[in-house]
């Protein structure tokens, strides 16, 4: 069994050989499912998720809505962002089945839905639903962050207008709450082992701004350390945005080259070789 997170102080190396401010390898693809309106596949280290977006479209028959009339959509004449997360039974070490009503899954769905609804221009599509299906194929920490990033990419692919990328990333600290080590380094992009042993938070920002769209922290950590963690997390989000943007641009360039799309307005400045 390899060493645990306490070995960090020996040589400033994390359990997988990264430094404190390094992301894991991020690999992303968009338009992976031709049949869907938008789709993406994203890996952050060994966390692998895929996303399919359908819509905006007229909502299907809804159950449990009293009154019936008025169509679907969210309140106030905006599109509803319906997120469903399915965690594959084989995604973690122990084969575990998570049911539909699983509380953690529900929480993930709500968080993602709220974050995206704020960035997508939902007011353009009243009485309609944007349904986002996320599938977790493999888990190794930073699950929520990976899901948000995948959903963002898929929404870009679906062509839904949005203010900016919603990009997410986790941040942690090299020592635990109990150790109360003020000199602890903040950590970027935690893997599963680190998430289990160390305090962590998930932060999502709106593109390259410092505007925080999601902030989830479920572990105990001293408030004094939180600031450093947050700063590292936000800078991580900016790095993720660069990567995602590159993926989108690469795909666009590729499509133009193949002639799938015409080189149109606003694409001029893109270098197509």
């Amino acid at each position: 069994m390899p060493l645990d997170t306490s070995a960090y102080s020996l040589a400033l190396l994390r359990v997988d050989g990264r430094r404190w401010n390094e992301l894991r390898r991020v690999h992303a693809q968009i338009r992976t499912q031709a049949a869907a309106d938008g789709s993406s596949y994203l890996e952050m280290g060994h966390t692998k998720v895929m996303c399919v977006v359908n819509g905006p479209s007229e909502p299907g028959p809804r159950r449990g809505t009293a009154g019936g009339g008025g169509g679907g959509g969210g309140p106030g004449g905006v599109a509803e962002v319906a997120v469903s997360v399915v965690v594959a039974g084989f995604s973690s070490v122990d084969r575990k089945r998570r049911g539909r009503g699983d509380k953690r899954t529900l929480e993930l769905q709500t968080t993602i839905s709220n974050a995206l609804a704020a960035s997508l221009h939902t007011h353009l599509y009243p009485h309609s639903t944007i349904s986002i299906s996320l599938h977790v194929l493999s888990q190794d920490g930073s699950l929520l962050a990976a899901l948000i990033n995948a959903a963002t990419l898929a929404c870009v692919d679906a062509g839904i207008p949005m203010t900016d990328y919603v990009v997410a990333c986790t941040a942690g600290s090299t020592s635990t709450y109990a150790a109360n080590d003020e000199t602890a380094d903040p950590l970027l992009d935690l893997n599963h082992q680190e998430e289990q042993e160390l305090p962590s938070l998930t932060v999502a920002t709106l593109g390259e701004t410092d505007r925080v769209a999601v902030l989830v922290c479920e572990s105990r950590v001293q408030a004094s350390r939180l600031e450093g963690m947050l700063a590292v997390g936000v800078s991580g989000c900016h790095q993720v945005r660069e990567i995602l943007d590159q993926v989108v641009r690469d795909k666009g360039r590729h499509m133009i080259k193949e002639g799938t799309v015409e080189k149109g307005m606003g694409v001029e400045e893109m270098e197509v070789d």
Binding site: D16, G17, R18, E22, R24, R25, H46, V93, D94, N191
Partner: peptide
């Protein structure tokens, strides 16, 4: 259990 961990070589 089969555990797979990433290792970043530097």
């Amino acid at each position: 259990q089969k555990i797979v961990r990433e290792v970043y070589l530097r």
